[in-house]
């Protein structure tokens, strides 16, 4: 086992400088995130609850789907976060691979479980929406299949980063998987435009006006913002915990080696 990352006392004197540099940024992250995190979590949940309550109680029902269209206030944010979360996972992986930034490895390892959770939520709510609307729980069209592939990429990343005894090797293998999987993101986005799918094209785009009534668009935007903040807060909380856990491991290991050394001295 070589968990030297967060244990400066364990590093050889010649590598002290590099090791301290690597240690500095997680420390700064802990200080900065300590102030931001409670606000992020509180605002995220507050905005999410406002958006969902608005969508469930006050927003109008769709003229043909009826109240089933209210599922969009959960399905759309979770679908957005499934893709956006994977994009952030890819960025963290690239930074970790190229610049070997230890915090990026921590971020990648902690983003994928949250992303997998929101992708599962997207698939489940989509199924609940599809049955009454289309008449099927699931179809193998390009959109649904590519999102299922995204879910498996997340699961693969979760397993891979934790599959190695050496966490750095796990992070590197996971980063390569995450970066290869990025090709899936444009496929998800444009599947509904490139191929005939049962899933409809996007209602909201960067170009062109949305094809959704303003009275439904507002609660949708609010729940998207709320869920996004909750996602970010969850990642920050998990990263804080992970950095502390690494520090704990380092300190315990340092203590164990000094104890072993004193034991050796005692025997000598």
């Amino acid at each position: 086992m070589a968990v030297t990352m967060d244990a400066p006392s364990q590093a050889a004197p010649s590598r002290q400088g590099r090791s301290l540099h690597r240690f500095a940024n997680p420390g700064r992250f802990l200080r900065l995130s300590k102030a931001v995190f409670p606000w992020l979590m509180a605002c995220g949940w507050l905005i999410t609850l406002v958006g969902l309550a608005w969508g469930f109680f006050y927003a109008p029902a769709d003229w043909q789907q009826g109240d089933t269209s209210r599922i969009m206030y959960i399905h759309v944010p979770s679908a957005w976060l499934a893709s956006a979360g994977y994009f952030s996972l890819a960025i963290a992986s690239a930074v970790g691979l190229v610049w070997r930034h230890p915090l990026a490895d921590v971020a990648a390892a902690e983003i994928s479980p949250v992303g997998a959770g929101f992708t599962a939520l997207c698939l489940a709510t989509g199924s609940l929406w599809g049955k009454p609307t289309w008449g099927a729980w699931w179809v193998w069209d390009a959109r649904l299949t590519s999102v299922l592939v995204l879910f498996f990429l997340y699961l693969g990343h979760i397993a891979l980063v934790r599959a190695f005894d050496n966490p750095e090797r796990g992070a590197r293998a996971g980063a390569i998987l995450a970066l290869v999987g990025v090709v899936n993101l444009p496929i998800i986005k444009f599947s509904v435009d490139w191929w005939n799918t049962l899933h409809q094209p996007a209602s909201i785009g960067l170009t062109g006006s949305p094809s959704i009534a303003a009275s439904m668009l507002w609660p949708l935007l609010i729940s998207v913002i709320g869920y996004t903040l909750v996602f970010a807060a969850l990642v920050v909380a998990r990263m804080r915990a992970a950095v502390m856990e690494r520090r704990i491991r380092g300190l315990l290991m340092a203590r164990a080696t000094t104890d072993a050394a004193t034991d050796q001295d005692a025997f000598a």
Binding site: D62, W63, T133, Q200, I212
Partner: peptide
């Protein structure tokens, strides 16, 4: 043997549709 409905990307309240 099986018919699925395909919804479009438009969402509008009943009043607007009427």
């Amino acid at each position: 043997s099986e018919v699925l409905a395909k919804h479009d990307e438009n969402y509008m309240p009943k009043e607007v549709a009427e």
